[in-house]
Amino acid sequence: MRDRPEDVDEGELSRVLDKWGIGAASLAYAPVGFGDHHWIAADDRGRKWFVTVADLELKNGQGSQAALRGLRKAMDTAAALRDQEKLDFVVAPLRAADGETVHRLGPRYALSVFPFVEGVAGDFDQPLTPQERGAVLDLLAELHRQTPPASTPVLHAELSMRGLLEKALEGVISWAGGPFAEPARTLLSGRAPGLRQRLEEFDRLVKELKESHRAPVVTHGEPHPGNLLRLEDRYLMVDWDTVGLASPERDLWSVVREPEDLARYAKAGGRMPDASALTLYRLRWDLEEVSIYVDWFRAPHDRSLDMEQAWDGLVGAVERLTDKAPEKRQTLR
């Protein structure tokens, strides 16, 4: 996130870092990524760590305790993939002295520590060349072949906040107020018929997936260029908080672009991706985006760089789902 959270005390953050044996001489906020907050910690010997602080209240819409349990499972899974399965492309959290990958930072946040990697990061919507897509597909095929660690979360295709989205389309949720509340309400109201049609399509595809009885695999969840680090001639994958057991198409939909991509994955992964499952997870991504941003904008909020980015994300997802020509975006600056 680009906006540093004002309620995170860096003194307390340093004290929690002691659990990893890190005596941080300096902490620098890193305005990168979207969703979590990040700092770079350094000690007086020049060693560095990448510190991630997750806002549990924004994680899954199910409360901070459920979010914390889910985050621990995900981080433990990533650590196991690196340490037990020896996947060297997994940038996983380091374990604290007590063996934990996640520790509380006050009532709202949770902290994880990662090795500091001097790689070149990509952007979320950055196009990849065929060669680059092939390299990512090879990594995903290797990931999908792994025996799932015991901690791997089991994920279902259904939407995590379906009830909230349906109430928003019905116009029966309350909007607490903020600069994006009324524009979000108006946007959903105007596009409600189209969004309901996509929900019906989504339900049909979920039913088809369940009836296919395809074995789930370990998936990353968001292997887009923003979660890739180029290190010399190879890629590393970061942000494993979305890891979980699911259909491989959960990863593949955002990478494949050509029939050659499908053939490459089939050769490396041992099975051909399913076209309807690819459509399902592409659709699910946008529906989840809409649900998440509705949850943000219905709560009290202020104008910020992150909220402006969220607004753009909501508009983009709604436009893709309703399959209309992009309308002139409302200026809220």
Rank of each mutant, 00 (worst) to 15 (best):
R2N: 01
E12S: 09
E12P: 12
D18Y: 08
K19V: 15
W20Y: 00
G23E: 05
H37G: 02
H38A: 12
W39D: 00
K48P: 05
V51A: 05
V53Q: 05
D55Q: 01
E57A: 13
A67C: 07
L68T: 05
R69P: 04
G70M: 15
R72V: 10
D83T: 14
D83V: 15
F89H: 07
V90R: 03
A97D: 10
G106F: 13
R108K: 02
R108C: 06
S112T: 09
P115N: 02
A121W: 06
D123A: 11
F124I: 13
T129S: 13
R133Y: 14
L139F: 11
A141S: 11
R145P: 00
P148Y: 08
A150N: 12
E158D: 15
L159H: 11
M161Q: 14
R162F: 09
L165V: 02
E170K: 08
G177S: 03
G178W: 14
L188M: 15
L199W: 08
E208S: 11
L209E: 00
L209M: 07
P216I: 11
V217C: 02
T219E: 08
H220I: 00
G221M: 06
N227M: 09
L231C: 15
R234F: 15
M237D: 04
W240M: 01
S254D: 06
E258M: 15
A266G: 01
D274S: 08
A277M: 08
L278K: 04
Y281G: 02
R282I: 14
E288S: 11
V290H: 07
F297I: 07
H301V: 01
D302T: 13
L305K: 05
E308Y: 08
W311V: 04
R320A: 13
T322I: 03
D323E: 14
D323R: 08
T331P: 09
